[in-house]
Simulated scan of single mutants.
Amino acid sequence: MIKSFIDKILGKDPAKKRSPASGGRAAKAPRIPVGKRVDVPQSEHGIDPSLVDDRARRVVETLQDAGYEAYIVGGAVRDLILGHRPKDFDVATNATPEQVKSLFRRAFIIGRRFRIVHVVYGRGRENEVIEVSTFRAYLDATAAEQVTGNEKTSRKELADKSHVVDASGRVLRDNVWGPQDQDAARRDFTVNAMYYDPHTGVVVDYHGGIKDAKKRVLRM
Rank of each mutant, 00 (worst) to 15 (best):
E126L: 15
A27H: 13
R31K: 13
K3W: 14
P20E: 01
G24C: 03
T190E: 02
R105H: 11
T134A: 11
T93F: 08
D205C: 09
V165S: 02
R57C: 07
R55H: 12
H199C: 10
Q180W: 06
Q180V: 14
K161I: 04
I72Y: 06
V34M: 05
R55K: 13
A143K: 09
R170C: 05
R31N: 12
G122R: 01
S168F: 09
G11Y: 00
D7A: 07
L51K: 10
A95V: 09
I130L: 05
P97F: 08
A76D: 03
E131P: 00
V132M: 07
P198A: 03
V132Q: 03
Y196C: 07
E131G: 10
K214L: 14
Q42W: 14
S50M: 11
A66C: 06
D13E: 04
L103C: 10
L80N: 05
G178H: 04
R58D: 15
E145L: 06
R105Y: 08
R25C: 05
V117P: 12
G122S: 12
R125W: 13
S4L: 11
I32P: 09
A184Y: 02
A15F: 01
N192D: 12
Y71N: 05
P41M: 06
L103S: 08
D88H: 10
V100R: 00
G23Q: 02
W177V: 11
Q180I: 15
F189W: 11
A107R: 00
L80F: 00
V52I: 14
F89V: 04
V38L: 09
K36H: 11
S133T: 14
F5M: 12
L103V: 06
K3M: 14
R57H: 13
F114K: 05
K211G: 09
Y121V: 06
P41Y: 09
P97L: 04
E131K: 14
H163Y: 15
D140Y: 06
P86S: 06
Q64W: 02
I81Q: 03
F114M: 10
D65V: 09
G178K: 00
V52A: 01
R106Q: 12
A159M: 12
E157N: 11
P33I: 01
V77S: 04
K211Q: 14
K214F: 00
P97A: 05
E44M: 14
A137F: 02
I109Q: 03
I110L: 12
Y195E: 01
P179A: 10
K211V: 12
I72H: 07
R25D: 09
R105G: 10
V52G: 01
V176M: 12
R85D: 09
R216F: 15
V60G: 05
L139C: 07
D79Q: 05
Q42G: 13
D39V: 00
T62M: 08
R57M: 10
V147N: 10
H45T: 12
K12I: 11
R85G: 11
R219I: 06
D140A: 13
A26V: 04
I32V: 15
R123V: 15
A213V: 04
N192F: 10
V120I: 15
T153V: 01
R155I: 12
V40A: 06
F104P: 00
D13P: 00
D140W: 05
A193E: 01
I210H: 01
N94P: 06
A141M: 13
N175A: 03
G11V: 02
R173S: 02
T96I: 07
E98D: 10
L139V: 11
L218K: 07
N192S: 15
R186H: 07
G149L: 04
V91L: 08
V117E: 00
R25Y: 12
V176W: 08
K17T: 03
